[in-house]
Simulated scan of single mutants.
Amino acid sequence: MHGMRVAIPLEALAKGYSAFLVGFLVAMFAIVPALLAIAFGRFTDRCGYHLPVRLAAALSLVAGLCLAMSDSLLALCIGAACSGAGSGFGMIAIQRTASKMASSAATRLQIFSWIAIAPSLAGLIGPLLAGVMIDQFGYRQAFAILAIPPLVTLFLSQRVPREELKKPLANGSSQPRRVADILRILPVRRLLFINWAVVASWDVHGFVVPILGHQRGFSATEVGAIFAAFGLASIVVRLLLPLFVSRLSRKYLLLASLGLAALSLFIYPFLELAWMISICAFSFGVALGSVQPAILATLHEVTPSERHGETLAVRSMFTQGSMLAMPLLYGAVGASLGAALLLWGMVAALSAASWQVIRLYPRSVDLPSGE
C-alpha cells in the first residue's frame, strides 16, 4: 500500500491530471476502510483470521493486477480503493489475532510492539521499491511487482494457527451488536481521543514540514532528510520497545511519549537549520513510534474479547476519517493563521490526550502486567 501511495499519484501527475484529481486518488485509499471498517470488524469476529486476511490480500492483489493491465483513471481509482481497503482490513485481522495470542497484558504490549514494526518498515521499503521499479521498468511493471507482496501474505498466513471460534446462540436470543455499545465504554472513548490526537499530530507534521522547509529555503533533499529522520526513529523505537516493555509502566510510557511529541511540535517553528529540524523530527518519531502498541494493547483489555475485531474497526474508522478530514482543516487553518499556530494547536491536543492518559490508568493498574 505504501508503494501504491507513491506510484498512483506519480502516474496521475505524469498523465497530466489536475491537483484535484490527484487529491481525490489519495483520498480513495482511506474512504473504503472508513466506510466499511465496522462491517469488516464484525466479519473478523465471526470468522477469525484466515478468511478475512485472504479477502484483504485478494483486494491488494486486485489493486496491483488492475493497474498492471490498465492506465485509465478508473483503474487508478479501483487500485487506490482496493489497496487502501486491503491494507486497512488486513491490519484489523492481524491485530485482532495478535491479541488472541497474548498470555498476559505485558505479552500483549510486546506483541503489538513487534507488529508495529511492519508499517514502519513498509513506509521505507514500499516507496523505494515503487520508485526504483518505475524508473527501471515503467508503471505497468511496477504495479505488477507490487502485486507480489499480497501473494506472500496468502502463503505465510497458512502458518498462523487456527482459532476456535465461539458459535452464536441457536435460539436467536443474542442481542444485536451496535457500535454505540462500544462507544459507551469510557476507557474506549478516552483511547479513541488519544489515538485521534496522535494521528492528527502525525498528519500535521507531514503537512507543516514542507511549508517550513519552503519558508527557510531548504532543498528537496533536506526536506526528504527530515522525513527520513522521522521514519528512522519510528523503526528504531519499535525494534527496541519489545526488549524493554516488561519493565515499563504503560501509563508513564504514554505520558512520556505524548509529552515528547508535544515538545517537539512546540519548538519546530523556532528552528532555522535543517539539521536542527531533523533532530526534532527524530525525537517526534521516537515519541509517536512508542504510542500505538500501548493504545492497541489497552484497547483490547477494556473491550469484550468477542468484539475485538469490531473495536479495532471503530478505531480504524476514526483514524481513516481523520486522515480524510484533517488535511482539509490544516489547509484552511494554515493558510489563514500560519504553520506555527497549527503546530501549537496540536500541542494543546496532545496535552489534552495526556490528561486522558492520567484518567485512564489508575495507579493500581498502570503496570504492563496489569497487576
Score class of each variant (00 low, 15 high):
L55R: 05
L296R: 02
L253E: 00
A14Y: 07
Q356G: 11
E301N: 11
L341V: 12
F137E: 03
L191P: 02
L73H: 08
F112S: 01
K100Y: 11
S264L: 03
L341Y: 07
P127I: 09
A340F: 08
A228F: 04
V347T: 13
P304A: 13
A144W: 08
V204H: 01
V237C: 06
M323V: 09
S219P: 04
P119Q: 14
I211F: 09
L243I: 03
I92M: 00
Q175T: 14
A80K: 00
A37C: 12
H2K: 04
F318V: 14
R359K: 04
P176Q: 01
E310N: 02
Y252N: 01
I38N: 05
A335H: 14
V179R: 05
R189P: 04
G345F: 12
L25R: 04
G309E: 12
L288E: 06
Q215K: 15
A7L: 00
G48T: 08
L146D: 10
C66F: 13
V204L: 00
G86S: 05
A118C: 15
E163S: 15
C47A: 15
Y139T: 02
F43K: 12
L154C: 12
L67K: 06
I115S: 09
I235M: 13
Q175I: 14
Y17G: 08
P304I: 05
V237K: 03
P161Y: 13
A93Q: 03
V357G: 08
P242Y: 12
C47E: 12
A180L: 13
S70R: 12
E222N: 07
A197I: 00
K166C: 10
I182Y: 05
A80T: 05
S305C: 11
G345P: 10
I277Q: 03
S246D: 05
A325C: 06
A102V: 13
S70M: 11
I277R: 01
I194E: 01
I145N: 03
I78V: 15
S120Y: 00
R42H: 11
S157H: 05
T298G: 00
A225S: 15
S83G: 07
T311M: 08
V347I: 11
F282L: 01
A225V: 13
